[in-house]
Each structure stands twice: as structure tokens, then as C-alpha cells.
Write a protein that binds this DNA or RNA. Structure first.
Lengths: 221, 221, 221, 221
DNA sequence: CAATAATCGAGACGGTACGTCACGTCTTCTT
DNA sequence: AAGAAGACGTGACGTACCGTCTCGATTATTG
């Protein structure tokens, strides 16, 4: 949990009773998260200011500070709220097509406002480890689990070596995307996904024809 | 170009004459770069202040601003200056070894005290485009020029396809390093360089008759 | 108006309610005015720095700027606050005595440590119109209002012409004081007040039949 | 002399010989004085900067500092150079007309660019006594000498009391002008000169008719 | 005719204060 | 008690001039 811990925030504590005093305003909480995403989408990380967040949300600055200890936590929370567009892996029977389609989706998303939010998270995360952790847990891992399944299917089909290091392979596919996204801001077009897949997946093909045939043979059993 | 004035900073211009006015103080320039690295090493990026840089360097704040447009450019300059000589490409006769050695150096640097500086540059760069541009110009490009030469040698030796997209290939090699460095902070050991090279360079090997022929030739020896 | 915000600075507005938000700190306001006078007394105008004011007052620089738009306004405010009560007009039954007494007070103040402050205000005011305006509003006008009353009494008593231009008359009385104070630094002794009053008030005496009549009446007693 | 003293500056020393080295550039000197007046006329004292002076004059900053120790000296020198428009006193046979005409001239001059220069001098002079002294010597005194003559004529004609304090009288006439010029920037129209003269000169008239007649009698002798 | 010497323009230098901005905390009244 | 409003002390920002300095170029006198 990135927000400050408090029994109050869920209106329910051990004794089953709500604590005295005015309860936390759900409306304020949502407005804050909303304006956080708005600002990051509009102007990126540089104009992201707690004062600006509070102003846009029509909220007192102190209300932000009461619930989030720092910018990073706020960004991470807002990021978690933001519904990432579908990034499913298809199952076309070809690992090349499966990966290529999903990666093109990713490139497109990075080009939009969601891209600015991701880059803000990764930027802020260089200072605050927990932010990167949140990004890994909430964004990377779920997708990677699906990717593992895609790769396993490919191995079974004999498109990839049995002993391939799946994490290395995936980093080799996504690393260039992130690199271009974060460092070489130009050059981030979906067109470079296909050659990339060809290159890297090509390096993970079974070594010669005989083994390939054997796999095929097994599949056809 | 990272610094501001482009003519004055080199003691030589078109007409072979020094421009009028008091020349730039080389001593001040070095003191500034030195204290930049010092502070980043001592206290990290969040405490990095131009005022502190100027103070430590025994220099007026305006002198820093006269030559570097912003924090980032200063940091990028200091970083580039201090790492250039450690990242040469060897020429061992094998592209695999050439790349692998240089990449291990890079990983070592990223793992050391310079790592936080790089991550600070790239983080701040998400906000300020010019900073990333500076990093690309001063750090990435010179190294990439050397890498092109290395790849060309490999092509001539027949280790790589003639038509390989060199930029794509290099992004596929370095992308995973940057990805693990920036996003998956764990797992950044030099040991993963070799499999990475094997995977990606493997995908760029010639696959047509020529390779078969060479293999045949070797077999027939 | 010297200070910026016009509603907040008085604890009362139209609706009889205090505006929302933390109220202005009276303590800070007084500390700032106090240290303003202190510094002017200690080190004169050239060493007068907002930073020094804030430091001595134990106050943030921004707090000074929040309420005073510039040095001059601050100085004028501090000055006006500290001299108001010393410059009352007496009511002796003679316009000559009334004016003379108050003007001597003024000359004394100009000759004392406050003198350099006034001259600093008027000097700086040649550059910044708003400063002179502040001096007029906060210092001159209130005193002039009292002076009008004094002159009206004199008119009723028949000491001055009914149709006298009061502003012109007052400028003629005070102008020479300011002139000697600002331009002819020598010669600024309280002794020249009496002849000055005699000269100028003499020029504003009734000269027609009424005076003759009164004189006649007195003679016929 | 307000400039830094130097034998060099007049190209002539005790031995009748010019010292070695490049002589001072008369052209630079004039350009500096010219741009000083220009700036004061254009934008007043607030934008008056040594850097601006040097820039406008097409001169190195050091050249200004070599010859003038501070802003004040420079302004005073430039002021001395500036030819003040004629401010002669006429001799119309009436002190009222004589004074009124000259004072109207003064008011007009103060309304133009010369006014800004004068106000700059008086402003700067509050800090540097020598500046006010220069103003008194070069501007006030010559005119006052003529004024004394005008007043003497009036006394002889019996328009003024024999025992009138001439300095006090003149301060009472000009003080209001300076006061309005320096403090009450509005209200500085030539129209207020006549009532002013009427008021003040009225206060300096001989006390009753008999004495006036006597004077006339004497003049007619 | 060279050597010497001072001034010139240009502009970088170490400083200092400027006025602004956002920080994170606080103090007030309202809900 | 939490809310909004907004003032508070803090401290870095990037800018503007200060008055000094260091250049090469220029312009004179002296040897």
C-alpha cells in the first residue's frame, strides 16, 4: 500500500465501529487521483506539482499530504487506478505473430498519454525504489506471466529452443522498446517491432533442421 | 551540443583566431565538472544543487549557467567526460568477444557509483528533452560509432548478415541492459551479458548457403 | 494603498466574516516593520536588503514579498507607522502658531535619524512611481487632512482669506522645507520656520475692507 | 572635478609633454556622456546601468570604470555637459511678471527629458552629497544670482520690503515647484505658477501704503 | 623602426541580491 | 476529525549588474 496507513481510510476498524470525526472524503481522494493522471498526461512530470494537483482537484494541499507521503506514492496510486488498455497476447500458432502483435500494442500505448505516465513513474522510480517495484508488480508481471505461456506454446511447437532463458528472451524483445521509449525518443514507431522479433526470436530458434523436424514429428503424433 | 557557446569553447574557430574578450577559464570548467561528480557521489541527485556545485568549485553561479543550460547538461557532461576511456571496443577477431567485453564494462560502470548518475540523467531526462539529447550526443553516439566499426568488421568476417540493421542490432544488445538497469534493478550482473550476446548475435548470423559452405569447408578439412 | 491584499489585511470585510485560510501573522508584520527601521538606522539605504530584513525579522523572504511589492513600499510603510503620532497640529487659536509648531516638529524629524529614511524614500521614488504614491497616501495625505482643518479654523477666525487655495498655501509652507531638506542640505534649522510662516501666511491674509473694519473696531474700543 | 584625477586626461602635464602610451579616447568619453544622458532621458534612473551605458556608447565597461568612480560622478558629469535651456529673468518692471515668466520656463523644462535628468541627480544625490553639491553649484547658484538682481530691482521699486530675506523668499517660490516636481508628480502645470507668485510675493510686500508711497516718492526724485 | 606603455573593445570572472516558485507545515473557520 | 483555504519559514532557482580581470588590437612616445 502506498498511501499512509490508517485504520480510518476504510471506515472499518477492529471493533467494527467507525472512528469519531468526519470521515475521509472519497470524492476528494478520487479528484486527487484524477488530476494526478490529468497533469501527467497533459504536461508530463516536470509540471507535476502537489500544488497543481490540489488546485486542479479543488482540494487543500494538506489533504494531499495527509494521505500520500510524497509525489511518488501519489503517482503510483494514480497509475494503479488507471486502467491500462488491453495488452493480451493472441494465440495465432506462430510465436513471431503472437509477440509482434502484442508489442505493437505496447508501442502504441507508449506513444499516448499513458506513455507520459509510465515515463513519469520510471523517472520518479529512479529515486524511489518502491515506485519501480509497483510498476513491476502491477504492470510488468501480469503481462510477463502471459508471455511465459506464449513462449511455452512456441517451445512445444518447436519454434524455440527448449533451453531458452525466457526472461532473457523477453528482456531482449522489450528492452529495445523501453530503450527507444526512454532514451531515443525519436525512432519509436511500431514498424521496428517486426524486424526486432525476427532478429531476437531468430536467435532462439532450435539449432538445426533435424531437431526441428523431430519436434514437428512429435507434435503430429 | 551540450554546452552553450560553440565557438568560444574551443580555442580555434574558422578564421584561426581567438574571439575577442577574456577567454574561458579552463580551470573553472574543470573545477565545475569535478565538483559535479563529487556531489553526485556524496549526496545523490536530490541534493544536487547548482549553488552547491558553484560553491565547491569556488566559482560564481553565473559561470555555471553561462556554459551549461541546466543541471542535466552539466551532469551529462561530467559523466561523459569521466567514462569515455573505459568503454573502448576491443578487436579480438570475434564479434561475440568484442561486444561482450565492452558490454561487461558498461554493466560494471552501471553497477558502480556512476550508476546512480546515469539513472539520474535518464530520470531527469524524462522531464527535460534536452537532457536526454545531451546524453545521446555526448555519451551514446560516440560509443555507437565505435560499435558500427566493430559490426562492420564482423560482417566482413562473415560473422553477421550483410544486411543487418545495425541500429536495431545494437538496441537489441544494449536495450536489455538499460531495461534491467532502469526497471529491474535486481538481476544486473555481468554474467547475463554472454547469453545475451549469444542470443542476439545468433539471430544476426548469416543463415544461407555461405554459412553452409563455410561449415562444409570446415568439415572437409 | 501600500500593501497588496486589501481585504485580508483587516480582520473585517463586507460580510463581517473573516476570509478563509490562515490569517496573516500580525507578529510577522510587526517584526518586518521593526527590522526595516532598524536596518535603515544601522546601515542606511544602500545596504538595505529585503533578504536582510527577512533574516532579522526571522521571517521568510516570500512573506515580505507577499505583502509589500517592493523595497520602497516597505520603507514608506515603516516610516509612516513610526512618525504619525508626532506630527499632530495643535489648536492654539492662531494659525501662525498652529502651523509653526507642527512644521518645527517636521523639521526636527527630518534632522534626526528618520531624515535619511525620508530622503531614501523620495530618492527611490524618483525611480518607482508607486513609492512616491505610497509616501503621499500614507504620510502626506493624513497630515494634510489635519492641515485643512487647521486652515479652516483660521479662515473662520478671519486670519486667512476665504478664497485661499489651501493646497497651494500648504505647498508654499512645506515646499521650502522639502527643498532645503533635499537640495540645500545645509540651512535646515527650525529657526527658519517662523519667518517662513510669517511670509507665506502673510500673503494669505485678508486685505479688503473686513480687515480694515476689524482694525477699526479694535481702534474704536 | 568628478572624474578620476589624472594628468593624462588633458594631454598636458607639468613638463609640457604628453606621457607615453595610447592617449585617452575623446570619442569614447563623449559617447559615454551622451549615452548617459540618453538613458536618463529615455528611461530614467532605474534602467541606468553602467553596462547599458557602455553598450549604448559602444565602449568597454572597463573604460567607463577607468574614468568615473561611480554612477553618481558619471551622472553629474553628463549633467554638467548638458546645456540647460535658457532660464533668464526678464526685466519687465514688475517683480511678479519677472518671476512668473522664469518660473513657468522652469516648470516646462522639468516636464521634459531634462526633468528626468534632474530628478535622477537629486535622487542619486541623496546618497552622494557631492552630486547635490554639483547641482547646487552648476544649476541653482547661477540662476539664484540672477534672481537676487531681480529682487533687488523690485525692492528699489518698492514692490518688496527692504528687509526681506531673499533666500527665504526664493525658497518659498521655488520650493513648491520642486515639491510638486519630486513628490506630487501630478499637479505640475505652469498654471499654478501665477497664484504661487501672488501668494508669496504678496507676503513680502511693504506693509502699508504710506511706506510704499515713500519709496515711489524717492524713485521719482 | 623596434620597444615600451597605456588605452581600447570585448567579454568571462567571483560575487550578491533579486523576485519567484514549490516545498511541507501551520492555523484558521466550516462541515 | 477532516475538509478548503491560504499564510508561513525555507531554500534553490535562474537573472541581472556589480566591479575586476584578462585577452588581442590599437595608438602613441621613446630609444
Amino acid at each position: 500500500m502506498l498511501q499512509k496507513s490508517s485504520v480510518r481510510e476504510h471506515g472499518q476498524n477492529g471493533s467494527g465501529k467507525r472512528p469519531p470525526g468526519r470521515p475521509r472524503s472519497e470524492q476528494a481522494r478520487l479528484a486527487i487521483l484524477r488530476s494526478t493522471l490529468e497533469i501527467l498526461g497533459d504536461s508530463g512530470f516536470s509540471d507535476f506539482t502537489i500544488e497543481e494537483v490540489a488546485d486542479r482537484a479543488g482540494v487543500g494541499k494538506a489533504t494531499v499530504y495527509r494521505w500520500w507521503p510524497n509525489k511518488g506514492a501519489l503517482i503510483a496510486d494514480a497509475f494503479a487506478q488507471s486502467t491500462t488498455r488491453k495488452l493480451r497476447f493472441p494465440d495465432t500458432g506462430s510465436v513471431y505473430t503472437d509477440m509482434s502483435r502484442q508489442m505493437r500494442q505496447l508501442v502504441k500505448i507508449f506513444a499516448g498519454p499513458m506513455g507520459r505516465i509510465v515515463s513519469a513513474i520510471l523517472a520518479a522510480g529512479q529515486t524511489e525504489e518502491e515506485l519501480i517495484a509497483a510498476f513491476r508488480e502491477r504492470f510488468l508481471k501480469p503481462r510477463r506471466r502471459e508471455a511465459y505461456a506464449t513462449l511455452r506454446r512456441a517451445i512445444l511447437r518447436g519454434e524455440l529452443r527448449r533451453d531458452v532463458d525466457q526472461d532473457l528472451l523477453l528482456d531482449s524483445l522489450y528492452g529495445p522498446i523501453y530503450m527507444r521509449f526512454l532514451i531515443r525518443h525519436d525512432r519509436m514507431t511500431p514498424e521496428f517491432v517486426d524486424p526486432l522479433c525476427a532478429l531476437v526470436l531468430g536467435g532462439a530458434r532450435p539449432r538445426d533442421r533435424r531437431r526441428r523436424r523431430r519436434s514437428n514429428a512429435r507434435l503430429s503424433k
